Computed example of a mutant assay.
Amino acid sequence: MGTIKISNIRVYAYHGCLVEEGKIGSDYRIDLSVKANLQPSSKSDHLADTVDYVHLNKIVKEEMAVRTKLLETVASLILDRILLEIPLVKKAKIKVSKLNPPIGGNVEMVSIIMERKR
């Protein structure tokens, strides 16, 4: 078993409960890690034998482009797609952060962390 991590994926998206958030949007940061058997790819040197992080990044970007009210919802959708589309992944963990959230204070970011396994 091994871990593949993608850190600090930056996207601009329109998540949030406030009407303004859907119109103005905000910056988001996503950190993702997946666990999979990396032994076959370490021996074969073939992309088909591992988890393609380009595919992971594509899933994150596509799901972040669909507006939701809650970070929990978009994180869940990303995890669902990873497990559905990439059979090699045994476990996935995601951290979705909204930078400079509109919560009435000097707050750098709010984050949620979720994980799923087969």
Rank of each mutant, 00 (worst) to 15 (best):
M1N: 12
M1F: 14
M1Y: 13
T3M: 08
I4R: 03
K5S: 14
K5H: 06
K5R: 05
S7L: 09
S7P: 00
N8Y: 08
I9F: 07
I9C: 08
V11R: 09
Y12T: 07
A13T: 04
A13H: 02
Y14Q: 11
H15Q: 09
H15C: 03
G16L: 15
G16I: 08
C17E: 13
C17D: 04
C17P: 05
L18T: 15
L18Y: 14
V19E: 07
E20V: 05
E20W: 07
E21Y: 13
E21R: 05
E21Q: 07
G22S: 11
G22I: 14
G22R: 08
G22H: 11
K23L: 09
K23V: 12
I24W: 04
I24G: 04
I24N: 12
I24R: 14
G25C: 15
S26L: 04
D27G: 13
Y28W: 15
Y28S: 04
R29Y: 03
I30F: 01
I30P: 01
D31N: 13
D31L: 09
D31I: 15
D31T: 10
L32Y: 00
L32A: 08
S33F: 05
S33T: 12
S33V: 08
V34A: 02
A36V: 06
N37W: 11
P40R: 01
S41P: 01
S42M: 04
S42D: 08
S44Q: 00
S44A: 00
S44H: 00
S44W: 00
D45N: 02
H46Y: 10
L47N: 00
L47Q: 00
A48G: 06
D49C: 02
D49K: 01
T50Y: 00
Y53T: 12
H55T: 10
L56E: 02
L56I: 09
N57Y: 08
K61Q: 13
K61T: 09
E62C: 09
E62L: 06
E62Y: 05
E63P: 00
R67P: 03
R67H: 11
K69Y: 11
K69T: 13
K69E: 12
L71I: 09
L71N: 02
E72K: 06
V74M: 01
A75C: 15
L77R: 11
L77C: 14
I78A: 04
I78S: 01
L79Y: 06
L79D: 07
L79M: 14
D80R: 10
R81F: 00
R81L: 07
R81I: 03
I82P: 01
L83I: 15
L83K: 14
L84Y: 13
I86A: 04
I86S: 04
P87I: 03
P87F: 09
L88F: 13
L88S: 13
V89M: 04
K90I: 13
K90W: 06
K90D: 12
K91E: 15
K93R: 10
V96D: 01
S97Q: 07
S97T: 07
K98F: 03
L99K: 14
L99F: 08
N100W: 01
P102R: 12
P102A: 14
G104Y: 07
G104N: 09
G104W: 12
N106C: 04
N106G: 04
V107H: 14
M109S: 11
I112V: 08
I113Y: 05
I113C: 08
M114T: 05
M114R: 06
E115I: 09
K117A: 07
K117I: 03
R118N: 15
R118W: 12
